[in-house]
Computed example of a mutant assay.
Amino acid sequence: MWSGKKCSDSAAGTPTAEEEVKVVLVGDTQCGKTSLVQRFVSDTFIEAYTPTGFEKYGYTCTVADYRVNFSVWDTSGTTAYDTVRPLAYQDARIFMLCFNVAEPESLHNAAAKWYREVRTHGGSAPVLLCGCKADLRHDKETVAMLSKLRSHPVTSEEETVAMLSKLRSHPVTSEEETVAMLSKLRSHPVTSEEVSTAAIRLPLVLRNIS
């Protein structure tokens, strides 16, 4: 299937260059991939679930002096497509790892299964973690159902931790923020030795001033 839509963020003028961008969506079955694509390419929302095989959509957007032609690939999350799904990953410029906010297990799969799959077959293209069905995060029925299972909708903090843990990293601490900023300034955090040296020199400085 191919559908197209055009938009423009430029006030006037004709684009002088074109850019081709292939976007591939992956994730568990019924996690919201198709609804996300439809919202993007046609500004519509599909409530009824229809099984997906491989669907391809087109979207053209003019930004400044560039005409960006998006090729959006919606893939199936069923195991029946595990061997053929990676064929869609060729030449992808970015992957969107989708999960259902109301199904914590789908977030686990995004990191444990889908990230591994796109890294194995999709090269080094950037990966974007995308939580779908976010409106269910505060839905009373959803919260009550998950509560019975001793669970809860995925929070934004859990999204970050899940992806960072897969990358063998961790949320940035205040100390790391300081070190990163100081490194840009070609400096470093104050060491205990520097504190001792400053304590020794300070009386001498004050004596000279007086």
Rank of each mutant, 00 (worst) to 15 (best):
A102I: 06
H121V: 03
R93Y: 03
A11T: 11
G58E: 13
K113V: 03
V37M: 14
G122W: 08
D65I: 03
N109L: 02
A111C: 11
R116P: 09
E19T: 08
T14F: 12
V68D: 10
T50N: 14
A134Q: 10
A112P: 06
A17K: 15
S35V: 01
G27A: 04
P104S: 12
D43H: 14
V72M: 11
W73G: 01
R119G: 05
E18C: 02
F45G: 12
T120K: 02
R85W: 04
K56E: 15
E117V: 10
G131P: 06
G77I: 00
K113W: 11
C132G: 04
T79A: 06
C98A: 03
V68E: 04
G77Y: 06
T78C: 02
T34C: 14
A134M: 14
C98L: 06
F70I: 05
A64W: 12
V68C: 12
A12M: 03
V26D: 07
A11W: 03
C132A: 13
F99D: 09
C130S: 06
A88R: 05
S71R: 04
E55V: 06
Y81R: 02
D9T: 14
L129N: 01
D28R: 05
V21E: 13
A64N: 14
A112I: 07
C61M: 13
T120R: 05
S42I: 14
W114P: 02
A48C: 08
Y115K: 09
D65L: 13
E105A: 10
W114K: 02
L25T: 09
E117S: 08
C130F: 01
R116A: 08
V63N: 13
E117F: 09
A48F: 12
D135P: 15
V84G: 05
L36A: 13
G77V: 00
Y89M: 07
Y66L: 10
R85P: 00
A88T: 04
N109D: 14
F54E: 10
V118H: 10
Y115L: 09
W114Q: 00
V41D: 12
N69K: 13
T78R: 08
T29C: 09
T50Q: 15
C132K: 07
D91R: 15
H121W: 09
V23H: 09
G13C: 09
E18K: 00
V127A: 02
A111I: 01
G13I: 08
K133Y: 04
C31P: 02
L97V: 06
T75V: 01
T83A: 00
L128V: 12
R93H: 03
R93W: 06
T120F: 13
L97E: 02
Y59C: 14
S8Y: 10
E103R: 12
T44H: 13
F95D: 02
L36M: 10
T60N: 14
E55N: 15
A111L: 04
V41K: 13
P15E: 08
T34L: 15
T75F: 01
F40L: 11
